[in-house]
């Protein structure tokens, strides 16, 4: 049983994606439901887990009904959450609200103006990941405050927000980190006073490989690529994404990529020769 705060299976926290399959442009809901149905996995979506006890999880659905699910073994992934940190300047004045958003993430050069889902834009997303007040502070990955979710936010009549947070770990996180690190180096060395490289999630792609069986000859994985992570309907009016770079497929080849990435990233983490040429 799969329980998720996604509005539908395949939302993936990024408002879903479209992929080419058998001559059709297919929605990721169909792709994900097919994988789950094939493996006989059931799903409960639009659910907010309220409480976990031994052998039992309680959750609320978007219609504010409450349900229970029993289990023998459960794995829960907590939602992304900022840390409750306080910030003070040299004179001891509390500058927490200048540095952190109410969610606890660091404010960067995003457009935080509250606006309805229909008015969200790719331009809302930060490009330099730099705090607007303190130019020597940067935040990447799950440390920066996103301007809003990517998926359409939903609330139950009880006012419980049931929506996935934007995914910003893995490849996007590392891409941002590299750009910011290189900008900081330039700023320290006097090459530039301001960041020159950008890493907006609305201008970068991501690849995700989800293993569905690890055997080297009989295993499979679901490989998904998406560009850009944050849909840009101004550039790509149909689906918000470049369909030549947005795809999903299941197969052994994807599992080999999983193996390859596993060894490459460990090699890179150990800083072995030429580690820096291995991409994120």
């Amino acid at each position: 049983m799969w329980i998720s705060n996604e509005q539908f299976l395949g939302d993936l926290g990024m408002g879903a994606m479209h992929l080419e399959q058998g001559g059709y442009t297919m929605h990721s809901k169909s792709f994900a439901e097919s994988i789950f149905a094939e493996r006989d996995i059931r799903w409960i979506v639009g659910a907010h887990v309220k409480q976990v006890e031994a052998g039992k999880v309680e959750y609320e659905l978007l219609d504010s009904t409450f349900h229970e699910q029993s289990f023998d073994f459960a794995m829960l992934i907590p939602p992304f959450a900022g840390q409750e940190m306080k910030a003070f300047d040299a004179s001891g004045e509390d500058i927490t609200s200048t540095i952190f958003a109410p969610s606890g993430y660091m404010k960067v050069d995003a457009d935080y103006t509250p606006k309805p889902y229909a008015e969200w834009s790719a331009d809302d997303w930060p490009k330099k990941l730099q705090n607007p007040t303190y130019s020597n502070m940067f935040a990447v990955g799950i440390a920066f405050a996103p301007p809003h979710q990517i998926s359409q936010p939903r609330k139950s009549p009880n006012d419980t927000l049931i929506t996935p947070a934007p995914p910003r770990t893995g490849m996007p996180s590392a891409t941002m980190a590299r750009a910011v690190a290189e900008n900081i180096v330039d700023m320290i060395n006097g090459v530039s006073d301001t960041p020159t490289r950008t890493a907006s999630m609305a201008q970068m792609g991501a690849a995700c490989i989800a293993s569905t069986g690890k055997d080297f000859f009989t295993g499979t994985a679901a490989a998904m690529t998406v560009y850009p992570v944050v849909p840009d309907y101004a550039k790509f009016p149909d689906t918000g994404r470049d369909q030549s770079l947005t795809s999903g497929e299941v197969g052994l080849g994807a599992q080999w990529i999983k193996h390859t990435l596993h060894h490459l990233f460990i090699y890179k983490a150990k800083l072995k020769p030429f580690w820096s040429v291995i991409p994120e």
């Binding site: 891409t175 792609g205 560009y227 770079l245 990529i257």
Partner: peptide, 10 residues
């Protein structure tokens, strides 16, 4: 495809 993604996003 992943190489193309990297070239476009970096």
């Amino acid at each position: 495809k992943i190489v193309r993604l990297l070239m476009k996003g970096h």
